[in-house]
Design a binder for these strands. Structure first.
Length: 282
DNA sequence: CGTTCAACCTGGGCGC
DNA sequence: TGCGCCCAGGTTGAAC
């Protein structure tokens, strides 16, 4: 579920935990294997107790809490990856059943909850050095919110794969997922099947420009919520950017730009929606 | 290098 | 009503 705009909205929505000290940690659900929680729940709880949240940062589609220990030791990062259905909440979760993490604070107030229906999300506590290795370049490319055409061109121009697949590659740019890839390609008028190596510098500029614009707008509208059991803000409200979707999920609808019929195809085992009328193959 | 598949999970929707 | 199947915002590793 959550892509860049949704994770950004969650990070902003839990901003009031900055400066707070952790006094209680619970991980109610037994975990699958390999464990999505690392270190394992017991040790995670021990290590989090007494730490203060210094800052919250979004890295691609991950929420990263910067922690400061009460006693001198290396500072740490709590990295939460919501994957398909994970939510960071400051209000009671939709069900008790899928609560994965509850963090309570010294000052009282509502706990911070990680709720994840499908349970594919991950929670990792990493020291600063490990965090840099696992969540930085070259594994994680430049943030999609400030994607530049020259970078995009350099990153993909020698590649044979399709542009849709490349946009989903977090090493190329971090934060784009299936919804926004489709919307960006539509806005730029580029056929998702186009080979990267056929894209000019000018087309990369256009893709980068539309990428920044669409993601900014989606953040302003607090992300995309599709259906009931889907993404919610930290106070459990739906986002509003789904109203602006032009092609995502619009099989057989008329293209809002040219009237042709929107098509669904599958690329890399994922649905892609596009307009065969006005998205040009390069 | 690029593509495909399976896994990790839960649950909604649809056809029969 | 119930069953079986397909689908879903993501990521990873193995096989070809």
């Amino acid at each position: 579920m959550p892509e860049l705009p949704e994770v950004e909205t969650m990070c902003r929505g839990i901003g009031d935990v900055i400066g707070q000290t952790i006094v209680s940690v619970a991980t109610p659900r037994r975990t699958r294997r390999p464990s999505p929680i690392s270190p394992p729940p017991r040790r995670l709880a021990t290590e989090l107790l007494g730490q203060r949240i210094e800052a919250i940062e979004r890295v691609g589609k991950r929420a990263v809490l910067h922690l400061r220990p009460s006693r001198a030791s290396a500072s740490a990062r709590l990295v939460i990856e919501p994957r398909m259905t994970g939510l960071l909440l400051r209000v009671p979760p939709p069900t008790e059943q899928h609560v994965r993490l509850i963090v309570e604070f010294q000052a009282g107030g509502p706990p911070l909850t990680f709720w994840d229906r499908r349970g594919l999300g991950t929670i990792r506590l990493l020291d600063a050095a490990t965090f840099a290795t696992r969540c930085g370049p070259p594994l994680i490319g430049p943030d999609a919110l400030s994607l530049r055409g020259d970078w995009l061109y350099e990153a993909i121009h020698a590649s044979q794969r399709s542009i849709k697949v490349a946009l989903l590659d977090q090493r190329v740019t971090a934060g784009i997922g299936n919804i926004y890839a489709a919307e960006i390609l539509f806005a730029a008028g580029v056929d998702p099947r186009s080979r990267c190596c056929r894209l000019s510098r000018a087309v990369c500029d256009s893709l980068a420009r539309h990428c920044r614009r669409i993601l900014q707008r989606a953040i302003r509208l607090e992300g995309s919520s599709i259906g009931d059991e889907t993404y919610r803000t930290a106070d459990n409200r739906p986002g509003r950017f789904q109203r602006c979707h032009q092609v995502y999920g619009q099989t057989d609808a008329a293209c809002p730009r040219c009237g042709a019929t929107i098509r669904r195809i599958v690329q890399a085992q994922r649905s892609t929606w596009f307009c065969p009328g006005c998205q040009r193959r390069r």
